[in-house]
């Protein structure tokens, strides 16, 4: 039976994947550029939230500084490709290495301690990086940021149209989802589920809890760094105001709304919450006034969503969906 379910799952994923892949073919018309750009943003946010979902939903930790990893990745790749003129893949590698190193340096000391020191350490890290982005003018261009960042390219393949950018972002996202799903369904995922069940039991099984949490955090930092590299090449411009504490909090809101012990829930939440301020991209009929109101109240809604979800639907979207399916299954 579970084998059957596994097959259904693969089929569903295939259909969703194919659907995502063909989207650019159907987006045409005058604002196609805008719509595809918004959808690329969605994919970029989803990539960061995927990492946060591993961290929050499986490892039981929260990061208040993922905007900083996002920024680190963006600046690293922008600098390598624009200022050094090196290939895009080298920039991507720089983003990965830098965010991995920063992730390990933060996680090792704070996860050794019991409690939620990681949240505080990441908060401080995020603010330090924000200052660094402004002050390290030689690399980051200071408060004005860096512009004219080249498009991504891999060998002869250049991602210089909105369609290509969309495919690049979503292609990377699919790869990241595959990695994350393997982790969740494999040994590390089992260890983290064990931790939810019994901490003493987990230790008695000889499982290095800290080690797993450090790895999960580092991976989530790298996901954010890769998202940053994608962002830099898709937008062509980075500036420090993007990588704010505010963004970190909104990313956490997405992961929380998505729910624990799920990847699909947070991904869905990332898609929906990212689209809200750009609602006119998918609902072209929306008037300017409606959009203004939405953008005006967006942050309040995020704050409220965080509180309400934690209080009244701690499983988030994933928990709610699970509830529906389980009840449906039992009814049969």
């Amino acid at each position: 039976m579970s084998l059957l379910r596994e097959h259904w799952r693969k089929l569903a994923l295939l259909i969703v994947g194919a659907g995502v892949a063909v989207v650019p073919l159907f987006v045409t018309g005058t604002d196609a550029r805008y719509v595809l750009k918004v959808l690329s943003f969605v994919g970029i946010n989803a990539l960061i939230v995927l990492g946060l979902a591993l961290l929050f939903g499986y490892a039981g930790q929260v990061s208040m500084g993922h905007a900083a990893f996002f920024g680190l990745g963006a600046y690293a790749s922008a600098w390598v490709t624009k200022s050094l003129g090196l290939p895009w893949l080298v920039g991507l590698a720089a983003a990965v290495l830098l965010t991995a190193a920063a992730g390990i340096l933060l996680a090792l000391p704070s996860l050794r301690l019991k409690g939620h020191y990681l949240a505080m350490a990441t908060l401080a890290f995020g603010e330090i990086m924000r200052i660094a982005f402004v002050e390290a003018k030689g690399v980051t261009g200071g408060p004005d940021g860096l512009s004219g960042i080249p498009y991504a390219s891999i060998g002869p393949l250049s991602f210089d149209t909105p369609q290509m950018n969309y495919w690049l972002v979503w292609g990377v996202l699919v790869l990241a989802i595959w990695l994350a799903a393997n982790i969740v369904n494999g040994r590390p995922g089992r260890s983290m589920r064990a931790l939810h069940g019994s901490e003493l039991g987990t230790m008695a099984s000889g499982i290095n809890i800290t080690g797993i949490k450090v790895r999960v955090f580092t991976l989530s930092a790298v996901f954010a760094g890769v998202a940053g590299a994608l962002y830099a090449s898709v937008v062509g411009f980075v500036s420090p105001s993007t990588f704010s504490l505010h963004l970190s909090v909104i990313l956490v809101a997405m992961a929380v709304l998505g729910g624990t012990r799920s990847l699909a829930g947070p991904l869905l939440a990332a898609v929906v919450l990212t689209l809200i301020p750009y609602a006119d991209a998918i609902l072209p009929g929306l008037s300017r006034e409606v959009m203004t109101v939405i953008q005006e109240w967006e942050a309040d809604v995020y704050g409220l969503v965080i509180i309400i979800v934690i209080l009244f639907m701690p499983g988030g979207i994933a928990g709610a969906l699970r509830g529906v399916f389980v009840r449906g299954g039992e009814a049969k």
């Binding site: 990695l179 393997n182 982790i183 040994r187 590390p188 995922g189 260890s191 987990t202 000889g206 499982i207």
Partner: peptide, 15 residues
């Protein structure tokens, strides 16, 4: 889960 003690959580191979 007890066997994880010996073989570690093997993050990269699992991913």
């Amino acid at each position: 889960l007890g066997t994880h003690a010996r073989s570690g959580s093997s993050f990269t191979p699992a991913a």
